[in-house]
Structures are given as structure tokens and as C-alpha cells.
């Protein structure tokens, strides 16, 4: 699962790079518009270590943000699954919060929380929270009738059991959503850093953009992609592992 993800990423990345280079040589563009392979390699040697550190910094925040939003989405999903007034209120509130674009909220967040760790974390969590919530709500609100029937008939159904049944039956779907939301958490953190932070790969990309340095951006994209592939692969592996243990105890 993990090596396959990395190989897939490498194929996509190098196809994209080849396309760029084809345009470069086709149009005889200078290294300023699209850097040549030698310059990209040179940039890689000069920046890879620093950028990797930045990517890991960004990723650590993305992971914490993701964990937060998973917890929040589970909480809201569990409460919002009920067809009660409170359930639908929670659902509506959750949808509304997401209706505001992050770029519009970001300045308020930065003014209130400054441009450090907390702002980056909050924005990452906000960006990856909604798709997670949608899936969790969808999963939690959908009864597994064939399993739940017995517990309802015999008055044994408790909310914990209901959540357990629905989570277990949809574990594969949940794993996919969680792995997918990792990309969003990462994108969210990068956006936050790009808008207003003093650290992370988003911040480095912003500086590279100031300097019109596409080479650095290509290196950053490479490192982001490879780190994300590893992380997502690990998440999928964890999902499979949890399922295996859950099924065999």
C-alpha cells in the first residue's frame, strides 16, 4: 500500500515535470520561467534539507489539526446523527461554519490568535474538518438495520452500541475519508502559512514566489507530495491494522 502510493506519486510528479520541461524546450524559455533539470537539481541540493524540515514542521501541525478535526467531526457526527431538534441544530451549525471561506476568516484568526502555532492549527483543522464531518454524519446517520434490529426489538440499544455498529460497518469508508482528509489538513496548513506565518513550507513557498523561483517551488511540491504519500499510506495501513485487530479479538 505504502510503496504503491509513493510510486504513484513519483509517476505523477515526474510526468508533470516532464510536461513543464517539454514546454520549456518547446518554447525555448529561460531558466527564469521554467528552470532546467540542472538548475532544479542544484536547487534540490541546496534547499532539500531545509525544505524537508519545513515540510515536517507543516505536517506535524497538519496531523494535530487533523486529529482535532477527527475528534470534533466524530463528536458532532454522533450528536448530529439523531433526528432530534438538537441533532439537526448541531448539523446546521456545523454546515454554516463551513460556509465561510477560510481566506475571509483567516485575517480574523490571525488578529485574534497571532501568527504562530495556534492559527496554523486552527486553519488546518477548519479546512479538513468539513469533509470529515460530512462523511461521519453520513455514516452515523445511516442505520445498519439488519444488525440494529435485534437490539432495538429487545430494548438493548444504547448510543455507544449504535455508534460502534455504524463505525465498524463503515470502517473502510472512514479510513479512506481520514486518509483523504490528511491532504486537506496539509493544504490547510500550507494556506495558513502562506497567508500569515513565520514557519513551515507554506511560508517558504511564499518567499520563493516573491523571488519568482519556480525551482524552489518544484522542490517544495516534491517534498510535500512524498511526505503526504507516506503519511496517507501509514494512515491506510493503520486503518487496515485496526480492522484486523477489531475483527480478530
Amino acid at each position: 500500500m505504502l510503496p504503491r502510493r509513493i510510486v504513484q506519486f513519483l509517476i505523477i510528479y515526474f510526468l508533470g515535470l516532464a510536461g513543464l520541461l517539454a514546454v520549456k524546450y518547446g518554447l525555448q524559455l529561460s531558466n527564469y520561467v521554467i528552470p532546467g533539470p540542472a538548475l532544479i537539481w542544484q536547487t534540490f541540493q541546496a534547499e532539500a534539507v531545509r525544505y524537508l524540515r519545513d515540510v515536517l514542521d507543516t505536517m506535524s501541525i497538519a496531523i494535530i489539526g487533523q486529529v482535532l478535526s477527527i475528534c470534533l467531526a466524530l463528536l458532532v457526527g454522533i450528536v448530529g446523527r439523531q433526528t432530534t431538534w438538537f441533532g439537526s441544530f448541531v448539523k446546521v451549525a456545523a454546515y454554516n461554519v463551513q460556509a465561510y471561506p477560510i481566506v475571509a476568516l483567516a485575517p480574523i484568526i490571525f488578529i485574534l490568535l497571532g501568527d504562530g502555532f495556534l492559527s496554523r492549527l486552527l486553519i488546518a483543522a477548519m479546512i479538513c474538518y468539513f469533509p470529515l464531518l460530512l462523511s461521519v454524519l453520513g455514516i452515523m446517520a445511516e442505520p445498519i438495520r439488519d444488525i440494529e434490529h435485534f437490539y432495538r426489538m429487545t430494548g438493548r440499544m444504547r448510543w455507544q452500541l449504535e455508534v460502534k455498529i455504524r463505525a465498524f460497518e463503515n470502517l473502510g469508508k472512514l479510513t479512506t475519508v481520514v486518509a483523504g482528509s490528511a491532504t486537506l489538513a496539509m493544504a490547510g496548513t500550507i494556506v495558513a502559512e502562506f497567508i500569515a506565518a513565520n514557519a513551515g513550507i507554506g511560508y517558504s513557498i511564499r518567499i520563493a514566489l516573491y523571488q519568482s523561483d519556480l525551482g524552489k517551488i518544484l522542490i517544495a511540491l516534491f517534498l510535500i507530495g512524498i511526505s503526504l504519500s507516506v503519511y496517507q499510506g501509514l494512515l491506510e495501513w493503520c486503518g487496515a491494522f485496526i480492522r484486523r485487530t477489531w475483527e480478530s479479538n
Binding site: 529561460s30 531558466n31 527564469y32 520561467v33 528552470p35 538548475l39 523571488q211 519568482s212 523561483d213
Partner: peptide
Amino acid sequence: DQVIRALDKGAP
């Protein structure tokens, strides 16, 4: 600075 950076990378 944009011009000088571009010249550095061979932009015409």
C-alpha cells in the same frame, strides 16, 4: 530585483 534575478537565469 526581478529584472536582475531574471537576467541571472538567462531571461532575455
